[in-house]
Structure formats: C-alpha cells, structure tokens
C-alpha cells in the first residue's frame, strides 16, 4: 500500500471517529472508559467494511453519509451484543412462565365493571389462543424475546442463527397470519383494541 492510500485510509478513519460520538450519545457517555476503545474499534471495522463494499456505493447519498450508515450498524450491533450478553434465549423462554398472571390482575388500571372486565379477559384469552394456534414454535420463541422481553431484533437473530432480515420476515409472516386469522373470524385488530379502550 502506497503513502497516498495509507493517507486515504487514515482520513476515512478520522471521519468515522469524528462523527460516531454523536451517534452514541444515547448509548454510552463519552466519559465512560469503554467509549474511546469502542470508537476506535468501530472506526477500524468500518474502514475494513467500507473497503470491501466500495463497489456497492451508488452515489445516491453523500459518501460520508454512506460511511456513517455502516459505522452506526457496526457500533449499535456491538452495543446490543454487550447489553444482552448475560441473557440467554432459553432464560427468556423459561421466563414466559413468570408472565402467567390472571388477566384480571394485568388489566387493573382503567378496568371497567365486572362485565367489561370479563369481556377483556375473554379477548385476551382469545388472542393468546390465536398466537398458540397460528404461530410456529420458532415464531413464538422470537415473539417472546422481542415483544415480551424487549430484546433487539439483531440479538435475537444472532442467537437463533438467522440473519436479522430473515427474522423480520419471520415476524412479518407471523403478524400476517394473525391478521388473516382475525379476519376469518370477522374481527379486526381495531375491534380487539377497542375493547381495551372502553371505560
């Protein structure tokens, strides 16, 4: 590699290092001792990824925006991995049992009278039954991790041995199956949600 190429790579790394702190403000304080090493690590990885994908840049945005997009993906993937590394998917599935409270205890806030409460409980049980009947075990496992536990899509996908895109598609299929099932039963999601809005 010649001096001009080395200088170009150094410029690229400097661009990433200058912008990345703004992206990370919601995730990690710049005073945190992990901050500087993370920025350095992400900048290094970004340079390598940019070089390997340079031929895919189509000039539809500024080159720096394209670089930052790549850097942000690398940085947030790493931060998500660190945040959730102590939690296993198995523990998430086992944790499902802990959520098995009576519906009446779970809808206490603006609960209506006994009839309304019973209607809500019936609908909750119905939605749960649709989930159990329509979704595959894999879709249910992903739903627990994503919706119940709030784990990021990227992390769930990694642990399930899938690409993030494939997991989104899996959950899109799951949502569509539930939507079509509700429709076959003459219901819409708006009908279901309206039951919970009634005083």
């Amino acid at each position: 590699m010649g001096p001009s190429q080395e200088a170009a790579l150094e410029d690229l790394r400097a661009i990433v290092q200058a912008g990345l702190p703004y992206a990370l403000t919601q995730w990690l304080s710049s005073d945190d001792p992990r901050f500087a090493p993370l920025v350095e690590e992400v900048a290094q990885e970004t340079v390598m990824r940019v070089l390997s994908r340079l031929d895919t840049f189509e000039g539809r945005s500024q080159f720096t925006t394209w670089i930052y997009k790549i850097a942000v993906r690398i940085a947030l993937t790493e931060l998500r991995r660190r945040k959730w590394r102590e939690v296993s998917l198995n523990s998430l599935v086992e944790g499902e049992e802990e959520t098995s409270l009576p519906a009446s205890e779970l809808i206490a806030d603006s609960a209506p009278g006994p009839e309304g409460l019973a209607e809500r409980e019936d609908m909750l049980a119905h939605v749960q039954r649709l989930i159990n009947e329509e979704l595959t075990p894999k879709q249910r496992q992903a739903m627990i991790a994503l919706v119940v536990q709030g784990m990021p899509l990227e992390e769930v996908a990694r642990r399930m041995g899938m690409e993030r895109n494939a997991l989104y598609k899996l959950m899109h299929d799951a949502r569509l199956r539930l939507k079509h099932r509700l429709a076959r039963e003459g219901l819409t999601s708006t009908d279901v949600l309206s039951i919970f809005d009634r005083e």
């Binding site: 499902e96 959520t99 098995s100 409270l101 519906a103 779970l106 809808i107 809500r120 909750l124 049980a125 939605v127 749960q128 989930i131 739903m143 919706v147 119940v148 539930l178 999601s189 279901v192 949600l193 919970f196």
Partner: peptide
C-alpha cells in the same frame, strides 16, 4: 399467558 399489555402490543 402473555401479560395484557404485551397482547395489546401484539394486536
């Protein structure tokens, strides 16, 4: 069974 708020979020 999922908690109420989770089922509502799913819907």
């Amino acid at each position: 069974m999922f908690p109420s708020e989770i089922l509502q979020k799913v819907v």
